[in-house]
Design a protein around this nucleic acid. Structure first.
Lengths: 334, 334
DNA sequence: CTACACGCTTGGAGCGCTCCAACCAATAGA
DNA sequence: TCTATTGGTTGGAGCGCTCCAAGCGTGTAG
């Protein structure tokens, strides 16, 4: 398992170690003859430069640290896919860590990322205290995804939940709906922005917002719908529901069908997140999509701008979600 | 951004650099007085050992390379979660790469992982040629997940699709079903084992296997069911369907309901993979669960056994899936 | 024919750390 | 009292690489 070093390649090619280094860094001041000799020698030996040694000697790092609160959440997996492809294109490598939604764990995870002396760190929805983030930012560039910050030393990438809700409301209004209720996400981190966006959009259209308490689960969606139908008269019943997320919407749909309502003929439903099952033909849920890959790419970009010293002012990316119209929305009854 | 080094800590604590190293490696031969002096000095300076420098000097690595073919696939995300937690417990860090299902990309990804001189490498369902895997195994321990190998130098971790199918068949048989059809997964990598397991289990019970061509998508499931109902007489119709995966099962269910069949009263359906939506109350799909986290943990374990030289014989982990009985299965009609 | 620039090449110092041999009390045994 | 022994500590070499100053041969101008 002993791997060849630059020294070995140099010896075999009959040149000095420094020349080999120049070749592997694509220096223009190497004669073609030598370059080829080095390259073939390296090839024969199966030589590969040692990233760690290079990092140490060059005082630069090609490592990006990534801490994710929950990998199993498809949202983060998508963002990481975006991070990964952007990092690869820029010649960087991802070191990955999971924080498991616990501040203690996250602190340890961050420590261990920083011990790589990475070029930068991406924190996906961390629950870490701001002070810890600030401390990390003194060490290397830091980007926060799905979490805001007022620190001028850290960049942020978020989706615009206010705009996303507006899209949903616009869509329903343009179909002719006027009584549109929102099934709230409760304490979920994304719920506040979505609720606010809903309220604003409704008022902008001169409509009365109706926020029904719920949660980001299918059972909560069912419960909220049953409660709604039991307490509101037929005439006052909303003709459309804008749900906090797709799971909630799915539960709402189940309950509506159970109560004998047809979708979208009797009532329209919009979700949020564009999870994989919302595209299933049977579900065909109209929903709001966050540009998750794009968020990952932007995070890497922000990091690299700092690394290259192109920017010192904080970046505040607020990404525009998009509406994915499918089969659960239509014109209101009558 | 200049971070303190061991030298700085040594100077501040009034000791030598070597002593600081001993402290940070928990050497027993350091007096308590010195240890404490070093620790407080390190704390005041915000010192953290540099993993890369340590790796270089100690000729050991705490890095595990992970190449995943598709991060957005929830299956891999779960396996990586398992890898991550096992790695963390053992004091290792994950360097992550995506191969994007292209042999060329995967080769490049593997190269870049190896350039870290990792302690070991985990390849998640690679499409890489065996020769490339063999070459990598000459460099460091390699574990394959969701892919077999006959190389004695690499370990493998797979789920036992044959056993998983058997579980599904057993479950249906124990409910009283005798006409059980299988919606095949076609060319999907996991399909062959599931098909074989189904056939074996059916024969073991003296039943006739019926394999209906399909694919691992919801639309394919729908199509297969419509075709089945159109071509098979009521009397010969299966009383249960064992689908290649959850998506396929979901499509099958949609089609069955569309044709006026009630589930599970008229026909039972079993999926495979236990994807997140199969647990939704409305879906409540009986399915087969693979121990994904466990697979990740075992991969790390296998790697570490090789690293520590505890084993040279290849490990062949074949994990037992488990049945998750939910609402789509019941006793057959009559 | 010398000067001197230019292009290519090289040795050496050093990145932050580990690890080994050597060292230095302080104590114990003879 | 003198030597072993032991527990604690240290300087130095070196991991694989980069980068700089310096070297060297060749070509061109003076």
């Amino acid at each position: 398992m002993a791997r060849p070093t630059m020294e070995d390649v140099a010896a075999r090619a009959g040149v000095s170690r420094a020349l080999v280094s120049l070749v592997f860094n694509n220096s223009p001041k190497v004669s073609d003859r030598r370059r080829e000799a080095v390259l073939t020698a390296a090839d024969e030996l199966g030589y590969q430069p040692h990233v760690m040694a290079r990092a140490l000697a060059s005082r630069t790092s090609t490592v990006l640290g990534v801490m994710v609160s929950d990998l199993r959440n498809a949202f983060f997996a998508d963002v990481i896919e975006g991070l990964e492809s952007a990092a690869r294109e820029a010649g960087f490598e991802l070191v990955l860590n999971s924080g498991s939604r616990s501040p203690g764990r996250e602190k340890a995870a961050l420590r261990s990322l920083l011990s790589f002396h990475p070029a930068g760190v991406v924190l996906l929805s961390p629950v870490l205290p701001a002070s810890a983030i600030e401390a990390a930012a003194r060490t290397c560039p830091v980007v926060l995804v799905s979490r805001g910050s007022r620190l001028s030393t850290v960049d942020t990438v978020n989706d615009d939940g206010v705009a996303g809700s507006a899209l949903a409301v616009e869509h329903l209004v343009s179909l002719g709906h006027r009584r549109i209720a929102h099934l709230d996400g409760g304490t979920a981190t994304t719920a506040a922005a979505r609720r606010r966006g809903y309220r604003l959009a409704m008022k902008a259209h001169g409509l009365t917002p109706v926020v029904l308490p719920s949660e980001h689960t299918d059972t909560a969606g069912e419960k909220a719908v049953h409660h709604l139908l039991a307490t509101v008269s037929r005439a006052d019943r909303p003709t459309a529901l804008f749900c906090g997320n797709d799971f909630n919407a799915f539960g709402a749909i189940s309950a509506l069908e159970e109560e004998g309502l047809r979708i979208p003929d009797d009532i329209s439903v919009v979700g949020y997140d564009n999870t994989s099952f919302s595209a299933l033909r049977r579900v065909s849920l109209t929903t709001v999509d966050q540009p998750r890959l794009e968020m990952g790419r932007l995070a890497v970009e922000a990091l690299l701008e700092r690394v290259r010293g192109e920017r010192t002012a904080p970046a505040r990316h607020l990404l525009h979600p998009s509406l994915v119209p499918r089969g659960t929305t239509g014109v209101p009854p009558n």
